[in-house]
């Protein structure tokens, strides 16, 4: 009797494990395209966490559902259940296993964070650095209410679209001219709040050519949602060509949804006329991207 119960439990646990592994593999598909070295690391971690989480969720909910279906009280039964007050061995097990589990997750996450090294070399002195090509001066990211402007100091180029060469360590200097902003590229799985008054070194390695969304992720006021741009990853040759072509361009006024919307002062069904901080004028740059450009 006891061994049959044990066998049933083992079979159920194995089934749960198989389902969890399958869900863990599906988890890769819930993310945007994998366009950076960091994305691969984060997705592996997420898949691992999803596998573990699914196992625990199905296990606990399975027990509850079984109890709800099969352990209901009879209509005229006013008796109590068995007076079980606890079980020390069981309680030790369900304290120890989660403890080991979360320490394992933390250690694994630590290693991955170290490999990502997004805050610069100081941050991953113990880890294996992803092959870094030395770039003399970082690309300056200038954020403001509500525009993104990227400055390539060596080529004296400004752009409202971030261009990066593929498979090279991108080094950025994040700055804000007014309030907190968040530098976020979902396809790269990287994010960093930008603090006014501080210059933050930030780095990562794009690995897939294409055009991706770059979003403001830290709430920055009225037109926060419209403060988006693109990042273009291209071959080193195309990147060089773009830089040289852009350097030849005279500065022009770029598209800027926030400033345009503010100037148009659109009327919505529920309009209360509450004032907004006035957006900075549209940036004047060598290379102006269009909001209408497609992205992945």
């Amino acid at each position: 009797m006891k061994s049959r119960l044990l066998l049933t439990l083992v079979i159920l646990a194995v089934l749960n494990g198989l389902v969890s592994l399958w869900v863990g593999q599906k988890a890769y598909g819930w993310m945007p395209v994998q366009a950076s070295a960091e994305a691969v690391l984060v997705d592996n971690l997420f898949s691992f966490l999803t596998t573990l989480g699914t196992f625990i969720f199905l296990g606990v909910v399975g027990v509850l559902v079984y109890a709800v279906l099969f352990q209901r009280v009879g209509k005229y039964d006013v008796g109590d259940g068995p007076p079980i007050e606890g079980n020390v061995r069981l309680e030790v097990v369900w304290t120890a296993i989660p403890l080991v589990l979360v320490l394992w997750i933390a250690a694994y996450s630590f290693r991955i964070y170290d490999q990502m090294g997004i805050l610069g070399p100081m941050d991953h002195r113990m880890g294996m650095a992803v092959a870094a090509v030395v770039v003399d001066q970082p690309i300056e990211v200038r954020s403001r209410q509500w525009a993104w402007e990227f400055h390539y100091p060596e080529h004296h180029v400004t752009s409202t679209e971030l261009h990066l060469p593929v498979n090279q360590r991108a080094k950025l200097l994040l700055t804000s001219e007014d309030v907190l902003h968040g530098f976020y590229i979902p396809a790269f799985r990287i994010k960093q709040d930008i603090i006014p008054g501080r210059d933050i070194d930030f780095e990562f390695t794009p690995t897939r050519e294409g055009r991706y969304r770059l979003r403001d992720s830290d709430y920055s006021g009225t037109y926060f949602a419209a403060n988006q741009s693109h990042v273009v990853v291209e071959s080193p040759e195309a990147y060089q060509q773009w830089l040289e072509a852009a350097a030849q361009q005279p500065p022009t006024v770029a598209e800027n949804p926030a400033f345009q919307e503010f100037s148009r002062s659109v009327e919505n069904p529920i309009s209360l006329g509450w004032p907004s901080v006035q957006p900075a004028p549209a940036p004047v740059v060598n290379y102006a991207s269009s909001e209408a450009n497609s992205y992945e």
């Binding site: 966490l49 996450s109 964070y113 997004i118 976020y184 990287i190």
Partner: peptide, 10 residues
């Protein structure tokens, strides 16, 4: 887990 949080934070 910090690396995952970096992606989904905010």
């Amino acid at each position: 887990a910090v690396p995952f949080d970096i992606h989904v934070n905010n």
